[in-house]
């Protein structure tokens, strides 16, 4: 269970890291180091550098990303010998489920907004470059693509809406199951 859990979390962190152009292997390494830290004290960026041989600047960017995702937090501490201020990082293991659940809910809200937008608008698209415009935008451009000048065609695809409805209903069910599991703990 836990092995599969850490792999799933790693896939998530890798995906987000690559979206912000961080090395996803390095991000996964940092995550694993934080996961394996068992004494509850946390690891400082210096200790992480020693453990992984990743540059400190990059380690800090990765830690900042984990912080923004609310997966990790830090505490201010002192270096045991020099007394200099150090930040010790650890994963928020007790809140991680709620963080991920609220993320899923945000995704659901996004998809619902998108579906509403698709249902309430008429779209036109450029057959050459595929760019998409609402009726109002297309009207303003005289139904010509503002980039290449080709005549815009009506986009009457209903598949996007079908996909959205399917994904939304699955996500709703999944969130309901998650909430049930969390309530039982």
């Amino acid at each position: 269970m836990s092995q599969a859990d850490s792999e799933l979390l790693e896939r998530f962190v890798r995906a987000v890291a690559s979206m912000v152009r961080l090395d996803s292997d390095h991000a996964a390494t940092i995550l694993r180091k934080l996961l394996s830290e068992k004494n509850g004290k946390g690891l400082s960026d210096e200790e992480l550098e020693e453990l992984t041989n990743i540059r400190q600047g990059e380690i800090r960017r990765i830690l900042r990303l984990l912080y923004e995702l609310r997966l990790a937090s830090y505490r201010r501490g002192k270096h045991p010998e020099t007394g200099a201020t150090r930040y010790y990082w650890k994963l928020n293991l007790h809140t991680i489920n709620n963080v991920l659940l609220s993320r899923k809910k945000s995704v659901l809200r996004n998809l619902e907004l998108k579906l509403e937008y698709e249902e309430n608008n008429q779209f036109y698209y450029c057959p050459l470059d595929g760019s998409r415009y609402t009726f109002d935008e297309a009207y303003e451009y005289d139904f010509q693509c503002p980039k290449c000048g080709s005549i815009l065609e009506e986009d009457d695809r209903s598949e996007i809406k079908e996909v959205l409805r399917l994904v939304i209903s699955r996500l709703r069910e999944s969130i309901a199951r998650d909430e049930e599991r969390l309530a039982r703990q």
Binding site: M1, S2, D5, S6, L8, L9, R11, F12, A15, V16, M19, V20, L35, K38, G40, L65, E68, L69, L91, L93, H94, I96, N97, L100, L101, R103, K104, S106, V107, N110, L111, V167, R170, L171, S174, R177, D178, R181, L182, Q185
Partner: peptide, 24 residues
């Protein structure tokens, strides 16, 4: 506990780009 225990299923949402979007 200091163990990671996921009670939220993220396997099916990892595919949706919003879930892994840093700007969510």
């Amino acid at each position: 506990s200091l163990e990671l225990k996921l009670k939220v299923d993220i396997e099916d949402v990892l595919d949706i780009p919003c879930f892994t979007c840093p700007f969510l």
